[in-house]
Design a protein around this nucleic acid. Structure first.
Lengths: 242, 242
DNA sequence: CAGTGGTCTAGACCACTGA
DNA sequence: CAGTGGTCTAGACCACTGG
């Protein structure tokens, strides 16, 4: 039934209770000692659950006091991490569409081959235009290694690549490196994104995505309409001195 | 001398060894059992150290195998988190300058007062132009609550605000929420950033920064030259189902 | 002072990888 | 199969907050 992992269940339960205002913003969660009694676990397990909430920006722990519930209402949003357009679309309620512009075979761009040292550069290339409320928002270009995903049905490209990777193929996506820059784009891209002639700048997000076993498998270039782009981040400061 | 905290010392030691190629990219770290012997600690402590490296994108753990050292050479860069211009300047080697454009008293913008529910909106306002190699890169506008930092010397504004906050005042900066957008900016701002007439777009990073005790204390608006802006992120995917 | 979170230990059992 | 990381327990001592 549940995730079989206590600390994740506890984290989920606490998260739900915060979202439903059972633990309101600004109040303290029950102490770790109380939580161990409430959930019938050891303190280490409770602490692992609380670490999850901390990483997700839901609480701030204060030594000697307790765990303060943060104002999370403002971030109904992704909070960094790896989240995809389809997932975003479902968590928010948007009239979103995906139009497949290109679905073809190809090879990885040379600079990415160099960077990743990949042996077999054959990829499936997917180019998709995303719209929200009839308005063009972003053009995604995905290069997916054929050595990992031999084949991508058109139907999948129209919906969620990640759902296909994770649920159908059982791939375990672990991490990604992203860069965000602002760059001029081609006339064709301007046309897709509905950009005027005097403004050919788009926000370009490039991602290299890796599986649990550290194999690289996907390179993505997303070009966003600058006036519709918003990136929300929650960051913690690290104080390991010097 | 050191941080008094074993797991951070171990994390730092392992990080250094990775950076110096004692544990080369693609190889496995010693097993957790071996590391407990090496460092003379319990496994829990070793695991906490390894969690640090994982969060920093230095290793990927694989169940049944070990901890793979990731190719970190590509990110000599901030890797998200809260890092400031001065810190960046020192970690990289750049010819950077800071010019204070404005240093004055004022109040927090109304929308931020609403968002943060702050009681006393009096702030010190600092506007600074940052250049690298004589080239204007970003204009930072900081609103710092007087209830937390009563006074900011001009000398401080010319260098590092954060160093003053943390080292001189002993403030503990805990976390921040950031948004990144692209927006048209004023003529004056274009002039500061050296933007041409046909391009008035800048990358705008807005941050709300909080202390350990969850008090909000700083609002920052940074406007970057779009052609010099680069944001690098390392993100892990969370799979807590649904 | 009692209560809190931060760190650490020494065990245990499990699921997974690879030979 | 032996070795790995993932989870969990039941203790312990500490530094910090607040009354």
């Amino acid at each position: 039934m549940d995730t079989q992992v206590k600390y994740l269940n506890i984290a989920q339960d606490l998260t739900d209770k915060i979202k439903h205002d059972l633990y309101p913003t600004g109040t303290l969660l029950p102490s770790e000692a109380d939580l161990t009694k409430l959930y019938g676990t050891s303190r280490a397990t409770i602490r692992k659950a609380l670490t999850e909430l901390t990483n997700n920006g839901l609480i701030q722990k204060i030594k000697g006091k307790g765990s303060v519930v943060l104002n999370t209402a403002r971030f109904t949003f992704p909070i960094s991490g790896i989240t995809t357009f389809s997932e975003l679309n479902e968590s928010q309620q948007m009239h979103a569409t995906t139009k497949v512009l290109t679905l073809a075979e190809g090879t990885l761009p040379q600079d990415i081959i160099d960077q990743t040292q990949v042996k077999d550069p054959r990829v499936t290339f997917v180019q998709r235009l995303r719209t929200i409320n009839e308005e063009p928002i972003v053009v995604d270009e995905d290069y997916i290694l054929k050595s990992v995903v031999p084949n991508i049905p058109e139907k999948v490209a129209e919906h969620s690549l990640y759902r296909y990777f994770e649920e159908t193929l059982g791939l375990e996506i672990a991490y990604a490196t992203k860069t965000i820059t602002v760059e001029p784009v081609s006339d064709k891209m301007c046309h897709y994104l509905g950009l005027g002639a005097n403004n050919n700048l788009a926000v370009v997000v490039r991602s290299l995505t890796y599986l649990n076993d550290t194999t690289f498998f996907q390179y993505t270039v997303s070009r966003h309409r600058p006036d519709r782009f918003k990136f929300v981040d929650f960051a913690r400061r690290h104080h390991h001195g010097q």
